[in-house]
Simulated scan of single mutants.
Amino acid sequence: MIPLEVKKDTVYRKRSLSEKTKDMISGYLYVSPFFVIFAIIGLYPALFSLFLAFQKWNGMGEMEFVGLANFKVILTDPLFWKSVYNTIVLGIMGTAPQLVVGLVLAFFLNLTYLRFKNFFRITIFMPYITSMVAVALVFSVFFSNNDTALVNYLIGLIGMDPVNWKTSEWGAKIAISTMVFWRWLGYNTIIFFAGMQSISNDLYEAAKIDGANKLQQLRYITIPMLKPFILLTVFFSTVGAMQLFTEPAVFLGNAAFSRDEALTVVMYLYRDAFRISSFGTASASAIILLIFIVGVSALNMMITQGYGRKRGRKG
């Protein structure tokens, strides 16, 4: 016969194991909604798009396997390479200035003697939470093709001719990049400002004692200490620039998909999928865009990190 003490010990261990199992199951149940939603709206569409890249399908009939034919069509289409060129140009014009200006604005917002700080912080962040429709309407008025439009009036004061902002090659690019700059400047500024809040004031006090002015403090203290935040904003800005869609589509309206002055890669694949019902080439464009984003982001990060190490050695 098994002693009573051994039986009690076995029952206790079974109960203990059962409690651990219950805790483990409850933990998985708590986090399961995220994975279920991600699988439905994230993983499944990505895998289905990868599958469609090798198919010919109009969205209604049967699929036909065509291998790499969709990629060949895309890579030999001059309009696709025009969209790549537009995406890169708009990305540089719209995002690069906002990173520099956002860093400078965050530095001034972080000054201890600046008055009405909360007002300026809210004002700078307001464009990010403003409705895209309202932004497009305002900029459509500013960059109207009429001679009396605000921007045409201002450039007329310095002797320049009016510009057809929605039909000219560089006019559309300047207008859209200005919209991108205005909308996302506050977002990057707040990220930089949050990073500056984590820098100890002792470093600035020591720099003041050594005779460093504000520009030197920004160059030798703020920027090196903000390197993780700069890398984060560069990464997000690069990915966002390569996925540019809303601003040109809303600003130009229906003409955005019939003209090539501001046609981006995302607009190109959207046109293939929902305008001419060629989901195979649209999916192939999405795969190529993914490769571009990974490559450009890696190159951008390497340049940024290399610049940071170079500045560190000089310091």
Rank of each mutant, 00 (worst) to 15 (best):
V11G: 07
L17K: 13
K20D: 14
T21W: 10
Y28C: 10
G42D: 13
P45F: 08
L47S: 11
L47Q: 08
S49R: 05
L50M: 14
F51T: 04
A53F: 01
I74C: 02
T76C: 03
V84R: 10
L90G: 07
L90I: 15
M93A: 09
V100T: 09
L103Y: 08
L103N: 09
L105I: 05
F108T: 12
N110P: 12
Y113G: 06
R115T: 11
F119Y: 15
R121Q: 14
T123V: 13
I124W: 05
P127M: 00
M132N: 15
A134R: 08
L137V: 06
V138F: 05
N145C: 04
T148S: 15
A149K: 05
N152A: 01
L154K: 12
I155C: 03
P162E: 05
W170L: 06
A172H: 03
K173T: 11
I176Y: 04
S177A: 10
T178W: 10
T178F: 11
W182A: 07
L185M: 12
Y187F: 09
F193P: 08
Q197S: 10
I199E: 15
L215S: 12
L218C: 03
P224R: 05
P228T: 02
T233Q: 06
F235E: 13
F236D: 13
V239R: 09
A249T: 14
L252P: 10
A256I: 00
D260G: 03
A262W: 00
L263C: 07
T264N: 12
T264S: 12
L269A: 06
D272P: 00
A282I: 01
S283T: 00
A286P: 07
I288A: 09
I291H: 03
F292H: 08
I293M: 04
N300R: 04
G306M: 10
K310C: 05
R311M: 11
